[in-house]
């Protein structure tokens, strides 16, 4: 509506834009400036221009590899758990669809801290291991502070983010395509492999991105469920900023993280676009 005075309406976007610039763009700029700076004598930042911090990261690849390993593993397991459920809700659940979907989302909106805490409570030595000991199933089972606990925490916390895009892809899928495949003599498995799965692939890629990106910045899961033994990027950043106060190195690590994340996002989006292009032209390959 060009009639409604344009100047006033343009101005009303100003506070939000200003807020984004002051509290998001400017701090991110500061982050990049600090990442090419020098550490002050008692921590903090002391100006300068050097790429030493980025080079120094080469000696500290452990948290980056560890994060990548666990994020990829966790994302893969989340996919395996989420896909059948998404399929069930989208294809089989009928009228209960929306209720089932809402039931996935409700726990997701409760605090991440509490969801992670619930598992420290359950997996801790007084929780599940004690119960199993009482029943005489296993004698000495350690669950908390293991890689298993970390992957479990990832699956538990990020399941909805994986499920929703897959659900949307499956839900959009025209049932007559599956019927046609069956009419043409394909079995259940062949129909799934050649029709359903390729057509839901963009949703799968989208879900994997939605899980992978935030998991890479995860702090609570490795600390509470991994017992600090698995050193993630998040732990390294917290240490560098809050404990040792080596800001330039921490900023460089954060900068590297942003670059890595952007690369994954770009590749993932390109893959998803190609897949959905292939899906609409009907050639699943």
């Amino acid at each position: 509506m060009p009639k409604l005075i344009p100047r006033a309406s343009t101005l009303s976007t100003a506070p939000a834009v200003a807020w984004f610039v002051v509290f998001m763009v400017a701090p991110l700029t500061v982050l990049f400036v600090v990442s090419v700076g020098v550490r002050g004598p008692d921590g903090g930042y002391a100006g300068g221009f050097t790429f030493d911090n980025y080079l120094e990261l080469g000696n500290r690849l452990a948290p980056i590899w560890n994060t990548l390993k666990f994020s990829l593993l966790g994302t893969a397991v989340t996919l395996l758990v989420a896909y059948p459920l998404a399929y069930y809700i989208a294809v089989k659940a009928g009228r209960r669809k929306l209720v089932l979907l809402a039931l996935v989302i409700v726990p997701f909106w409760t605090s991440m801290l509490i969801r992670t805490y619930a598992w420290t409570f359950l997996l801790g030595s007084n929780g599940l291991p004690a119960v199993l000991r009482e029943w005489g199933v296993v004698d000495d089972l350690r669950l908390l502070n293991t890689p298993f606990a970390i992957v479990l925490g990832i699956v538990y916390n990020y399941l909805p983010l994986m499920l929703l895009p897959i659900y949307v892809a499956l839900e959009r899928l025209d049932p007559s395509l599956r019927a046609a495949s069956k009419d043409l003599g394909a079995g259940r498995l062949a129909t799934f492999r050649q029709v359903t799965l390729p057509l839901s692939a963009p949703g799968v890629v989208g879900g994997c991105l939605l899980v992978l990106i935030p998991v890479m910045g995860e702090y609570l899961i490795p600390v509470l469920l991994g017992g600090g033994r698995s050193y993630f990027l998040g732990n390294a950043l917290a240490d560098l900023f809050l404990q040792s106060r080596n800001w330039p190195l921490g900023a460089a690590l954060a900068g590297a993280f942003i670059l890595l994340m952007t690369a994954i996002l770009l590749v993932g989006t390109a893959v998803a676009r190609r897949l959905s292009g292939a899906a609409t032209t009907g050639s699943p390959a």
Partner: peptide, 10 residues
């Protein structure tokens, strides 16, 4: 986490 520590720095 990136937003948090950037705001801390700024």
């Amino acid at each position: 986490i990136v937003l948090g520590l950037s705001i801390l720095l700024a």
